[in-house]
């Protein structure tokens, strides 16, 4: 049974149809990369799955439990969100809280964990993303890469079943991208289920096991990443891969190599 299944999701903003019937399946332990040109609906898809946007229609099946998107009760949304986590493009850390408090806030208030235990779990989460020396720093005292790693610590601390990443490195300088991708790679190796909207082809190729390629609000092609990159079937996919071909061989590839070291 897949852990997450989305069927026929649609979403429009005014006259603009951003999602026009998207299907998606994520198995436990999968790292699924969602690729596609800007404006193809990748981010909207992710936001609809976590109810940050309300989809117009579609079905969401999470752990075998089925929900009609657009008619999900607040209670169900809150319940589902406790099993998931979201990492934003702009980190969205709470600016009035330290790194550690950013991680523990949700544990204490959302997950009703005792404070001392939450601080323990929070420290361990920050250790995992390599920030053991930054517990008491406020977000504006941290670099973009460190902030995004705090955001990842905040995401992993409650041990969610799946983490959604919305272009987690798009706001970062290349050298900071490396440290964030390295953390994500380790999470993947630890077996975390991840759904990642990204422009990092190197990451999609080497870390994700499945790729979904979106264009104009629909899935143009999906399949195992190896197949997708080495032997794309659709003409549109081939064109996309050609268009980003230079960056793939160049910058991203190099970054990934650095990340491995």
């Amino acid at each position: 049974m897949p852990m997450l299944e989305v069927k026929g999701i649609t979403k429009g903003f005014g006259t603009l149809d951003v999602l026009r019937g998207v299907d998606l399946t994520v198995e436990r332990g999968d790292v699924v990369a969602i690729l596609g040109p800007s404006g193809s609906g990748k981010t909207t898809l992710l936001r609809c799955i976590n109810f940050l946007e309300t989809a117009d229609s579609g079905t969401l099946i999470f752990d075998g439990e089925s929900f009609e998107l657009g008619h999900v009760s607040k209670r169900d949304i809150a319940r589902l969100r406790k099993k998931t986590a979201f990492v934003f493009q702009n980190y969205n850390l709470f600016s009035n809280k330290t790194a550690l408090e950013n991680v523990t806030e949700g544990l204490i208030l959302g997950h009703k964990m005792p404070k001392a235990q939450a601080r323990d779990v929070g420290r361990r989460a920050l250790d995992r993303v390599g920030l053991s020396d930054r517990y008491d720093y406020y977000p504006d005292q941290l670099s973009g890469g460190q902030q995004q790693r705090v955001a990842i610590a905040r995401a992993i601390a409650p041990e969610p079943e799946i983490i959604y990443f919305d272009e987690p490195t798009s706001a970062l300088d290349p050298e900071l991208t490396v440290e964030v991708l390295a953390v994500m790679r380790r999470l993947a190796e630890d077996g975390m289920t991840m759904l990642v909207v990204t422009h990092e082809m190197g990451f999609a190729r080497t870390v994700s096991n499945r790729v979904i390629f979106m264009e104009d609000g629909v899935v143009a092609e999906s399949g195992p990443s190896k197949e997708f990159f080495e032997n794309p079937k659709e003409e549109r996919t081939k064109a996309f891969l050609r268009s980003i071909g230079t960056t793939m061989a160049g910058e991203s590839g190099k970054k990934e190599n650095q990340a491995k070291e």
Partner: peptide
């Protein structure tokens, strides 16, 4: 920033 509100929801806050 409204993103902090969204992040709050995503971490399970009411």
């Amino acid at each position: 920033p409204v993103g902090q509100v969204e992040a709050g929801y995503c971490t399970g806050l009411s």
